[in-house]
Design a protein around this nucleic acid. Sequence first.
RNA 1: GGUGCCAUCGCCAAGCGGUAAGGCCGGAGCCUGCAAAGCUCCUAUCCCCGGUUCAAAUCCGGGUGGCACCUCCA
Length: 466
Amino acid sequence: MYLFDSVTKTKRPFIPLHEGKVSMYVCGPTVYDDAHLGHARSSVVFDLLRRVLMGSGYEVTYVKNITDIDDKILNKLSQTGQTLLELTSYYIERYNTEMEALNCLTPTQMPKATDHIDAMVHMIHTLIEKGFAYQSFDGTVYFDTTQDERYFSLSHRAIDESQTQSRLEEEHTKRHPNDFALWKPAKNSHEIAFDSALGRGRPGWHIECSAMIESTFGSQGEYAIDIHGGGADLLFPHHENEAAQSRCATGVELANFWVHNGFVTIGGEKMSKSLGNSFFLKDALEHYHGEVLRFYLLSTHYRSDLHFFEEDLLASKKRLDRLYRLKKRLYGMASTALETPFQVELLEALHDDMNTSKVFALIDAMLSHANDVLDNDPKNKAIKTQALANLAYIERVMGLGSLDAYAYFQFGFSSQEIEAIEALLAQRHEAKKAKDFATADALRQQLIERGIAIMDTVDGTKWERA
RNA sequence: GGUGCCAUCGCCAAGCGGUAAGGCCGGAGCCUGCAAAGCUCCUAUCCCCGGUUCAAAUCCGGGUGGCACCUCCA
C-alpha cells in the first residue's frame, strides 16, 4: 500500500514495523461538546485506513485517545456546574454512538487522558532530567524547543524571528516563544487538578498522546508506532510537539507515517437550512442515515478539503441508494466468500493512498453490470453470487451497505407511518386491479407528497423513502 | 506578514508526461396502464500567459483567484 506521509510529504510504500501487524494511533476528540462533521470525517477516514489494512491481512491495533481534561472542558464545567466525569462521560457516550452510526469500528482501545496522569508526569520528569524541559518560576513546566534539533521536521515550518520576538514579550514565563507547556500549575484550590511531584496542576494538551502511546505501544525499535493520524489542523503545533516530546524522552521517533485528513468547510454563503444551520453530526444524522454521511465524507479524497453542500450529500445518498437497490434485488440469498476481480481492483485503488473516488467509480460500474445482466436474465445465479460477494466485500472494507436493504429504505419512518403507507399501497393495489388508474395515481401522488417513492415490480409494489 | 495547499463539464470528483474515470443534474430511448426503479446512448481539452518535451490537465517560471496553518481545533 502507498500512503502519503506528512514528514516526507510524499506517497511512499507502507511497510509495517512488525510483520503482519500494524499499530495506529489517532487523535480523538476533546469531550466538552457534540461532534461535528469534521470529527466525523477524521473518524471515517481513519476507520477506512484501518479496514483497508485489515483487508490486506494485517492485524491492526487501533488506538484513539479521549482528551478529557483541558481548558475548554474546565470552561464548560464552570458554566454547567457538572462534575468532570459527568460532563466527559456524557460526551464520550454521544461520540461513540455517533461514530457507530457512521459504521466506524470500535477502536481497540480508547485511553483517557485522566487515566494516564502518572505516565505523563513520568515522561515530563524524564524530559527535565534529560535537559529537554524546564520549570518556570510560576510552576509551569515547558518543553525547550531549542533543544530538539528536529523540531519543525513534521510541519516544515520556518521560524519567523520578527514575529516570535513580539510574542515572547507577552509570555515572559517561557524562554522561547515556541516552547509549550507540559504541566500547568493549578491557579486556585477549586480548579480541577492533580497532585504530583511537579506540583498541583494538570498536564498540557500534547503530552497525553506521547505518554499514552508509550504506555500502550512501548518505545523500541526505530519508531514507536506505524501510523499516527489526525486532522490537518493538528499538524502544528499538536503533532509537532508530540513528536518532539516523544523523540526527546524515549530516543525513538514517534511514528513511521504521519497521516492527516483535510477539513470540512462550509462553502458558499448560506448554510443548509434543513441541517439546522449547523454542521453538528447529531443534526446531520437526523436527516441522513449514517452510511450516507460516511459515503459523502469519503467521496472526496481524504487529504483534500471537503466543502459541505447538502446538494452533494444528496448525490451521495442517491449513489448509496443504488447500492442498496441491488442488495434488495438479491434479498434472501446467502452470501458466499467468493473472490472476484472487482475486489482486487477495489483494494488496489484503496492501496493507492485511499483513492476513494476511484473506488466509487468501480462500485458504480459493478452495480450497473449486475443490474444489466439481471435485467436480461433474472435467474442468472452466477451474477447473483458474484454481486453478493462484492457487496459483502464493500461492506467489510468500505463500511458501506451493512444494513438490511429494507430497513435502509425505511430510514426515518416510524412503524405507525409504515403501516399507514402500506395501507395506502393496499388501496392502490385494489384500484389498479379494478383498472381504476385515476384513483391509483391519486394514491401514488399522496405517497409522493409524504416523501415516498413507489415502484411496481413483478414481485408487487415496493416503496422507499425518497 | 510568514509558510503551505489548491484551481478539471451547471454541481461534486478522479487523473501524477502519452493524448480527459465516475456520480448528480439535463436530454433521447427501452421497459411500464402511466410512473418509479433498472438498462442503453448523448454533454468538457483541463483559470490565464510564457517555457521544457516528439508528446503536458499532468514538469518549470510568471500572473490571477480561492483556501488553510502560524492561537483552541478533526
